[in-house]
Nucleic acid binder design. Structure first.
Lengths: 230, 230
DNA sequence: CAGCCCTACGTTGCATGCAATCGTGCGGGA
DNA sequence: TCCCGCACGATTGCATGCAACGTAGGGCTG
């Protein structure tokens, strides 16, 4: 359907998208039969997909008690940012020598567009920021050409966290974040890996502060473990 | 058998041990029926275990073509050490404030025993070094009390690499490595996370140099993709 | 004689069926 | 009234069977 791959692969990709896209909220129960019907396959590939997602940390499986979308405490969220705070700067530093002028121009373009739609004012469209931000960071990861680091980072990020909290930036933090993107472009253009590493470290620290604060207030209305959000 | 867990869990643990223990050499073919008979279960839990091991990076699965124990190039090995070079120092720094005097004493004991059996001379027993080293590092990981970092590190380490190359230290590198352990204990006792972080960074860099060199020479006699070694 | 196709085997991928386990609601006893 | 025990329903865990894919070998054709 989606591609010529196996059913298990499609189930894996679909479930990942559903979780990362927020359609399956953290804590939502993942019944095998329900998912199998929803995806039009049998329980076997669903089980395999759930298993792999559990290995990735996106779902939690309790033996004989089924799977749920993974939840996390504030402490775990801080742990994730702790991890990012060492991985992403390292990745960024690796990207510097690999970036061509064209690459830098593309990143520059992304940074400028994020600045446009992100700056507070009449033209602000925070929703447009999410895909641009993702594109920017993905581009950096690709430039680093470092599969091991990239895999570790992908496993760590737990995209739902990022996604759910991305719109909670206060104005000052958002301005800092936008400025960081521009500065990373500058560091790339200058070919200075240590500069790039330092900016990315700041970038993550800034995001960490925002998201931990947002998670703290969110835990209040997460008392009832709702089933689904879609 | 092993425990009261599910068959899939046992298959997973068993396969992991077989791979990490070196009984299944990198590149060895992993037929589902063969493994199922060997483990006394059906193909289903074996498939699940293989899937999860693939997610962990220990095996590689080609669709419709089966699974093999993961192999790696020298570049990937360098990538792994790149990852460790940021993760393990961070973990060590986190361990510092959590270490009680008793913890430090235990680590000190391990470091001293490693020094005894590792120092070149009549009493040298390099084989005894492997479990001691592992105990030392595991203890540090536990002290860090940082599940996210610990998971990322465990996923990165690819123990077969470490295991296969551990006995290839030249004398100078080995002396440095043993000294690092003692110095980490000193940093813990002093309660200085930056000191501990710095020593661990050196420790990984030293190991990296040894293992990359060892891997380079090993690739020579790895031309023939042997099936199994046990 | 070389190259290609086609067939047959082995393996993986998936669906289905059955047994075991867990959660839950009800009834009996203290 | 409250608590413990029990049986029912629902769900997971695993085994088996069948279909699809990949691979290797032999025969045919140019």
């Amino acid at each position: 359907m989606t591609r010529g791959l196996t059913s298990a692969e499609r189930a894996l990709a679909t479930l990942r998208d559903l979780i990362m896209g927020g359609e399956l909220a953290p804590g939502a129960r993942l019944g095998e039969v329900e998912l199998a019907e929803r995806l039009g396959v049998s329980r076997t590939p669903v089980r395999e997909a759930l298993s792999r997602l559990a290995a990735e940390g996106l779902v939690e499986i309790a033996p004989n008690r089924g799977a749920r979308v993974a939840t996390w405490t504030v402490a775990e969220l801080e742990g994730v940012f702790d991890l990012r705070s060492v991985l992403e700067p390292q990745l960024t530093a690796h990207a510097v020598p690999n970036a061509t002028a064209a690459d830098v121009d593309e990143l520059d373009d992304l940074a400028r567009r994020m600045h446009e739609v992100g700056t507070p004012g009449p033209r602000q469209e925070l929703d447009a920021l999410v895909p641009l931000n993702r594109a920017f960071h993905d581009r950096l990861v690709a430039l680093a050409a470092h599969p091991t680091l990239a895999t570790a980072l992908a496993a760590a990020i737990h995209p739902p966290i990022v996604r759910r909290n991305f719109l909670t930036y206060d104005e000052a933090s958002l301005r800092r974040s936008l400025a960081h993107h521009g500065e990373i472009v500058a560091a790339l253009r200058a070919g200075d890996p240590e500069w790039a590493r330092a900016v990315m470290t700041s970038h993550i620290a800034n995001a960490r502060a925002v998201m931990v604060r947002a998670a703290r207030v969110q835990t209040a209305d997460q008392v009832a473990p709702r089933e689904e959000s879609a």
